[in-house]
Design a protein around this nucleic acid. Structure first.
Lengths: 113, 113
DNA sequence: TTAAAACATAACCAAATGGTTATGAATCAA
DNA sequence: TTGATTCATAACCATTTGGTTATGTTTTAA
């Protein structure tokens, strides 16, 4: 999946909150309705709704109605794409870091001489 | 590296902005001073300073003084840990997604009968 | 039929975010 | 020595964010 800048904004933004990450972790165990998802957190029900909306706008979850319940399930594509993005650049950052480390080490050696 | 919730908040939060991601991408090519980093963006210099501060607080970059210049370089550990976190759960989200897909497919088949 | 359950939505609030202009400090170059 | 360069910091502003309470809607269960 190709992620544009806005997708990355929304995805990383959604992941930048412990409550929302907790919900995603919970959903890795299986589908859930909203009440069950809310249970571990002692914030109000509307606050939970807002978090779910953020996750939905980021494309990280999907909802379907089942009677009066709302069944939430995870949608892994965006998260996978964000993980790929991060892994891709991490590789270069590591290379860059090592290169600079070696350079600084050499400079130190030169000074000792 | 073990990431606590606050580290993940800061790291994903820092990544949730296109300007900051652009800076990190730029830094994957090598160290840079602040002016060179700022060049592609037409926002004010203090705005650049703020973005750098966010990246620094998240532990994604490091700075050192060199005369009147500030040399910025990337620090890959946090990004790597965040990438690991994402990759780890993505695996379960994919499993979960596939399981639900199969379940829903079976339900459809049953209905056809 | 009526009360409870499971949500969404609206209105509001404080704090955080991303931007600005103005200003100042340190360093370098002429 | 003085002016330009390279930055940081302070003060301010509008918007976003994460929370709240109040209220309404739909569905289920008694």
């Amino acid at each position: 999946m190709v992620m544009n800048q806005q997708d990355l904004d929304l995805t990383f933004g959604a992941l930048a909150d412990a409550t929302r990450r907790g919900m995603l972790v919970q959903l890795s165990q299986g589908e859930s309705n909203v009440s069950a998802l809310a249970e571990p957190y002692n914030i109000s029900q509307p606050a939970i709704s807002k978090h779910l909306r953020v996750l939905e706008k980021a494309g990280l979850i999907e909802r379907r109605r089942q009677g009066r319940e709302q069944i939430v399930r995870v949608k892994p594509e965006r998260a996978a794409a964000a993980a790929d993005w991060l892994a891709y650049y991490t590789q270069f950052w590591k290379q860059q870091f090592d290169a600079v480390e070696n350079y600084l080490k050499n400079v130190k050696k030169q000074k000792k001489k």
